[in-house]
């Protein structure tokens, strides 16, 4: 799949933003005043920035508001509804913490649940697609939720929690890389089943249907990333997990330590998200002999 910057920023930033807002909604850490202001600014900034980035993926954004209408059937629509709901529900709690020195725990909790829902529905946009077998697995929502929890903990300055979660999510990501390669073959689609010619023999492409490129090839038959996958995994994993964990465990929990660990984490997650898209193989590529 083509790793469009808009969807990479969308999934990464909303994950971080809603992860952070969820922690704050649950009251971890229970902050007020300036600290609260700074943390909510980050949380809302990431979440809104990510949602804004997603609109760059739309070829016809003037109809974007219609995306709120099909929540009964569409995961993308549910994502839109829950994202906005989460931002709205957390707001009074945030306002109370920042400006009134109090809190509205009920709304905080409800908002936190909506934040988790927003991350989950985001992951289901990808996990629902049978056509991309490496996405169509429970690992997708688990990892999206894991990244949000770990990133949120890191940005909210919960050192121990962040370190534990980073280790767990890092291991889960490693496991999913190990097993993910098999998923395409396990889905059972081949050029033979795609053409219905399995009874006649083995099939290969003789001539593509068009001499130039097209939307399908650009969007769904992206193959550039696979070459460098190994290297990028190391870079992504190192930045997202290893460096932050080492920093958190070895250095005193100073603001600067946290800032460097968080920055490294974001860069790593962006690289890993790039791979999530670039490495994913869509079954339509079979028709093009790829």
């Amino acid at each position: 799949m083509y790793p469009a910057p808009s969807v990479i920023y969308f999934t990464t930033l909303t994950g971080l933003g809603f992860g952070l807002l969820a922690w704050l909604g649950f009251g971890y850490p229970d902050v007020i005043g300036k600290t609260a202001f700074f943390l909510y600014l980050l949380g809302y900034g990431f979440a809104v920035g990510g949602l804004f980035a997603s609109t760059y993926h739309l070829a016809n954004p003037k109809n974007a508001r219609k995306a709120f209408s099909q929540w009964r059937t569409s995961w993308l629509s549910r994502e839109a509804v829950l994202s906005v709901a989460a931002l709205v529900i957390v707001a009074p709690h945030a306002f109370a913490q920042v400006f009134l020195g109090g809190s509205v725990p009920a709304l905080g909790w409800l908002g936190a649940v909506a934040c988790i829902g927003a991350v989950f529905t985001t992951s289901m946009i990808y996990a629902q697609l049978k056509t991309v077998p490496s996405w169509a697995t429970p690992a997708t929502p688990l990892l999206f939720l894991g990244y949000a929890a770990a990133g949120g903990a890191l940005f909210s300055g919960q050192v121990v929690m962040a370190a534990i979660l980073l280790v767990f999510v890092g291991i889960a990501q490693l496991g999913s890389w190990q097993l993910g390669g098999e998923l395409f073959a396990e889905a059972g689609a081949s050029l033979e089943t795609a053409t219905g010619l399995q009874g006649l023999g083995s099939v290969r492409q003789l001539e593509p249907p068009h001499s130039g490129t097209n939307y399908l090839l650009k969007e769904m038959v992206f193959q550039v990333g696979r070459k460098h996958a190994e290297k990028l995994r190391w870079i992504g994993g190192g930045l997202a997990f290893i460096l932050p964990v080492v920093l958190l465990l070895l250095l005193p929990p100073h603001f600067l330590t946290l800032a460097i660990a968080a920055g490294s984490h974001v860069a790593g997650v962006l690289a890993i998200r790039w791979l999530f898209f670039a490495e994913a193989k869509h079954v339509v590529s079979l028709y093009y002999g790829k």
């Binding site: 010619l197 099939v203 492409q205 001539e207 249907p209």
Partner: peptide
């Protein structure tokens, strides 16, 4: 679109 394949 019309693809062309070879079946062996």
């Amino acid at each position: 679109r019309v693809h062309s394949y070879e079946v062996t």
